[in-house]
Simulated scan of single mutants.
Amino acid sequence: MSQHLQPFDPDAAVFPVSVAASLADMHAQTLRGYDRLGLVVPQRAAGRGRRYSLRDIARLRHVQSLSQQGINLEGVSRILALEAEVDQLNQQVDRLAEVVRRLQTDEATSRVFTAEVSGAVQAGRFQTRTLRALPASPEVT
């Protein structure tokens, strides 16, 4: 009998605080403190209990690693915010790279981009025209 394993969702909030603390090798009070500071904010179960995901556990370990390097919690908070910005920028770059790839494979239609003062980009289309040569001029003898 063949079993089909389904991938585990790293964002599934399944671990209560005691299990998450054990997985992250921390005290449960530390996790609660990180939650209050906004460093690692788990989802809440119906009874309002904290539920941590695998991604939350990885983030807890990351916070712990930064703290062990001598970075205070305010510094850790700033580092996490900057890392989130970098992730967002990387996602934008990936989306733009996909747009460029599609544009490069689209031979029948050309696109024109204009930027507004606000920075918003507008995309337009125009059909390419075939340029025709002018008739040859008569030779002068």
Rank of each mutant, 00 (worst) to 15 (best):
T105E: 14
E107Q: 11
P7M: 08
T141A: 12
A120D: 15
V63M: 02
L31G: 02
A123K: 05
A58G: 07
A21G: 09
A28F: 01
R48K: 13
A13V: 07
Y34M: 03
L131C: 09
A46Q: 08
A133F: 02
S53I: 05
G38S: 06
Y52E: 03
D9L: 12
Q127T: 13
V140E: 10
Q92H: 12
E107S: 08
R48Q: 15
N90K: 10
A46E: 12
R50G: 03
V117F: 07
L103T: 08
E107C: 02
D9M: 09
M1E: 08
A123L: 14
S53Q: 10
G33C: 06
A136V: 09
Q69G: 10
R125P: 01
T109Q: 10
E74S: 12
V41F: 01
A20G: 04
A45N: 07
L80R: 10
R111L: 10
T130M: 09
Q92Y: 06
A28L: 06
V93G: 00
L54V: 11
Q43P: 00
A46T: 07
Q69R: 11
P135N: 05
P7I: 07
G124N: 08
D87W: 06
I71D: 04
L73Q: 01
A133I: 04
Q29K: 11
R111F: 14
F126S: 15
V17Q: 05
D106Y: 02
A12P: 06
M26W: 03
Q6S: 10
I57L: 03
A12H: 15
E74A: 13
V19H: 06
L66R: 05
R101S: 15
T109A: 05
R51A: 10
I79W: 05
L5S: 12
G70Y: 10
L103Y: 00
V117C: 04
D94G: 11
A20R: 03
V40C: 01
A120M: 15
D25N: 13
I79T: 09
A136F: 03
Q68E: 12
L54A: 10
A115Q: 14
V40R: 02
F8L: 13
S77R: 14
S67T: 15
L73H: 07
L80W: 09
R132L: 13
V17N: 02
A115R: 15
D25L: 06
S137Q: 14
L73M: 12
L60Y: 03
A28H: 05
V41M: 01
R48T: 11
R51W: 06
Q104A: 12
T128Y: 01
D87L: 08
R78T: 15
R61C: 06
A24Q: 06
V41R: 03
R50C: 00
G70S: 08
L23W: 05
V112I: 15
S110P: 00
F15W: 13
L37Q: 15
V40A: 04
A97N: 13
V121W: 09
R50M: 01
L31H: 00
S137N: 13
A12W: 09
T141G: 08
D35N: 04
S22R: 15
G124P: 00
L5P: 04
M26D: 02
R95P: 00
G70R: 14
L66Q: 09
P135G: 04
A133T: 06
A108W: 09
A24W: 03
P138F: 01
L54E: 10
H4R: 12
E98G: 02
Q92G: 07
S67G: 13
A81M: 13
S22T: 11
A24G: 05
